[in-house]
């Protein structure tokens, strides 16, 4: 039993390592090859846990092989559009100015119900509101609304976005500063420390600190654990 638990823990950390190595792409909407590798990895991991007589290398080696091939393949696809098209296919236009391309729908084996469902998921209930609808290579639908049906933007009203309407971003989380976001906002670590001194709040007591480019901030301090 201890050996089974140890094998499970080992495989668990190997899979976490594998998913971390493959990156955010794997966790988001998946391309066909990414979906295949995710399914395979999950099946391979379970082999070793279910069958103690199979050596642990029987799961670890195939998992690592798939991970490295997936990374190399995606790097190759990033360089070669032709290879990417071969592996993942092309995005396809299914609706143009409210008109459905029925040949394309048939080619994609998309039913009218599938199309309507995908449009409703984008909060579109009128086909005439669609300027362009594209089925992406991962199967999702991207929609560009016709100008008259689109939501009004500040640009349409010729209004400049005031500085204080810019979002406040988390520059410190659980006492750890996020240097990248600080740089994005044009702030320095010293300015952050100065702010905390003014608030009489050491870094360890900070749960969250939000700040925007205009210098507006919101500090959320850690709460002491309340005994019940």
């Amino acid at each position: 039993m201890y050996v089974l638990m140890l094998r499970t823990v080992l495989i668990y950390f190997v899979i976490i390592f594998a998913m971390r190595l493959m990156g955010k792409k794997q966790l988001g909407e998946l391309q066909p090859s990414e979906l295949v590798s995710t399914i395979l990895i999950s099946n391979l991991a379970s082999i070793c846990i279910e069958s103690p007589e199979i050596p642990i290398a029987g799961s670890v080696v195939p998992v690592l092989l798939i991970v490295s091939l997936e990374i190399l393949l995606s790097a190759a696809c990033a360089r070669s559009r032709r290879l990417a098209t071969m592996l993942s296919g092309n995005a396809c236009i299914v609706v143009r100015r409210g008109e459905i391309d029925q040949n394309m729908l048939r080619r994609l084996r998309f039913s009218a119900d599938d199309l309507l469902e995908a449009l409703r998921a984008k909060d579109i209930f009128e086909l005439d509101d669609v300027e362009l609808a594209i089925v992406e290579t991962n199967g999702s639908l991207s929609v560009c609304k016709r100008p008259g049906a689109d939501t009004i933007k500040l640009d349409d009203l010729n209004l400049d976005k005031p500085l204080d309407r810019l979002p406040r971003l988390p520059v410190m989380v659980q006492g750890e500063p996020d240097i990248e976001i600080l740089n994005c906002l044009g702030r320095s670590k010293e300015q952050l420390e100065q702010l905390l001194r003014e608030e009489n709040c050491p870094a360890q007591e900070v749960l969250l600190l939000f700040c925007n480019a205009a210098g507006e901030y919101k500090l959320v301090r850690r709460q002491q654990k309340q005994s019940q």
Binding site: L21, L64, L65, S68, L72, A75
Partner: peptide, 18 residues
């Protein structure tokens, strides 16, 4: 970095297989 890691892993797997 990930590509390098992938190449290293692949090299290790080939060595392990051999």
């Amino acid at each position: 970095n990930r590509v390098r890691a992938a190449i290293v892993i692949l090299a290790f797997l080939i060595a392990f297989s051999v």
